[in-house]
Simulated assay, not measured.
Amino acid sequence: MALVTGAVMAKPDPETHLLVTALARRGIVADVLPWNSEQNWAAYPLVVVRTPWDYFRHLEAFLAWAERTSALTHLVNPATVIAWNSHKGYLRELAADGVAVVPTLWIERAAAAPGERLAAQGWDEVVVKPAVSIGAIGALRTRADDPACLAHLESLVAEGDVMVQPFVRSIAEAGEVSLIYFGGVFSHAICKRPAAGDYRVQDMYGGTVHAHTPTVAERTLAEAVLQHAPAATSYARVDLVSHEGRPVLMELEAIEPELFLGATPDAAANFAAELAHQLEVAQARG
């Protein structure tokens, strides 16, 4: 099988080697290849999108690659899931369906008077970020009435769709919980905590990873979120935070999430088992 990565990465891939090893224990050879390299993708019965952490900078080309590749071979996650998950607008859809999501103001590209729309929300401290991005790239935590906030908002709106959320203080205090599922089955969970004085939980900003046992409420919400995906997922990470005393969805990561395969002894093996099953399905289809 092929494990898809990126040619230009914001940080080194910390875990694909764990998956390669777990697959090898099952007698499966996995090649790690950039999505935009010249490959005969049809030669692989299974192509797994893993760490193409440059996709958001080339979104149209990446989505076109996913469509082409899914016509040649068995692609996971499916191209329909990848397209749906590539724009954070899926959160708007989930909220409309009653899923608990962090409150969000959506501002479309080139929209008029974005500052006035933000002011009308009455929020104090906010996070402004592009609707297509990864790893908090392009995000700004700021007071809603700060001129820097308006400048950042207008800059982002000129380039694409934007989402603005009230700053969820529990992130700075307790972090963000991630639940990882393989084939729709819960595997493991972790808690990501930001560095002192920061709110970004990613390790490239100093965030740290800690063991976590999810609550019943967290499991229930995560599994409800997965039910809303347009197709079944072979892998997914559901990121939750606490807001107003209950867990709410921050993001569903179903394209290229870090899956924290080193967090538990069985994590990589769990993923390898799901991919081995997908490989059998693909080979049976011929």
Rank of each mutant, 00 (worst) to 15 (best):
A174F: 11
D203G: 07
H243N: 07
G183V: 10
A276C: 03
A136H: 01
H212N: 10
A267N: 00
M204L: 11
G206A: 00
V157W: 06
C149I: 10
H152W: 09
F167I: 08
T213H: 13
M204R: 14
H188F: 03
Q227G: 13
V162P: 02
N270V: 02
A263S: 14
L153Y: 00
D146A: 15
P147D: 07
A211Y: 07
H210S: 14
L153V: 01
L259S: 02
V164K: 12
L240S: 08
A136L: 03
Y181K: 05
T264L: 08
E154N: 05
A229F: 09
D145H: 07
D146V: 08
P265S: 04
A272I: 07
L150D: 04
R169G: 13
A269L: 02
I255P: 10
P194R: 00
L261W: 06
M204I: 10
L240H: 08
F186E: 01
R200W: 01
T208M: 10
E154F: 06
G138I: 01
A231Q: 10
G135M: 13
V216Y: 11
C149H: 09
E218W: 14
L156D: 00
P230E: 02
A158E: 14
E258G: 11
G206C: 11
Q165T: 06
R237E: 03
A273N: 07
T142E: 01
V157T: 14
G160Q: 15
L279G: 10
V241I: 12
A273D: 12
D161Q: 09
I134L: 13
S170C: 10
M204C: 04
Q227A: 15
E253Q: 12
D203A: 13
A144Q: 09
Q202P: 09
A224S: 01
L261D: 02
E274L: 03
P247L: 01
A158N: 06
A269V: 08
E274A: 06
D203K: 07
P247G: 02
F271R: 06
L150S: 08
A224D: 10
A254I: 14
E176Q: 11
L261F: 08
H277R: 14
M250Y: 05
P147T: 09
A211I: 05
V168S: 03
T264P: 10
Y205G: 06
A229S: 12
C149L: 11
T215Y: 12
Q278W: 04
V168T: 12
F182E: 00
D161T: 09
A254Q: 12
G245E: 06
H152K: 09
H152G: 05
H210L: 10
A222S: 15
M163N: 12
E280W: 03
E176W: 12
A158P: 04
V168H: 07
P265D: 00
S242M: 14
E244G: 06
Q165A: 08
S133C: 14
K192G: 04
A189I: 00
G138Y: 00
T208Q: 13
A174N: 13
D239Y: 05
R141F: 00
T264K: 15
K192R: 05
G245C: 04
Y235F: 10
E258Y: 11
L153S: 01
V281D: 03
A229P: 04
A276R: 07
D239T: 00
A272F: 08
S178E: 09
A269Q: 06
N270C: 13
S178H: 09
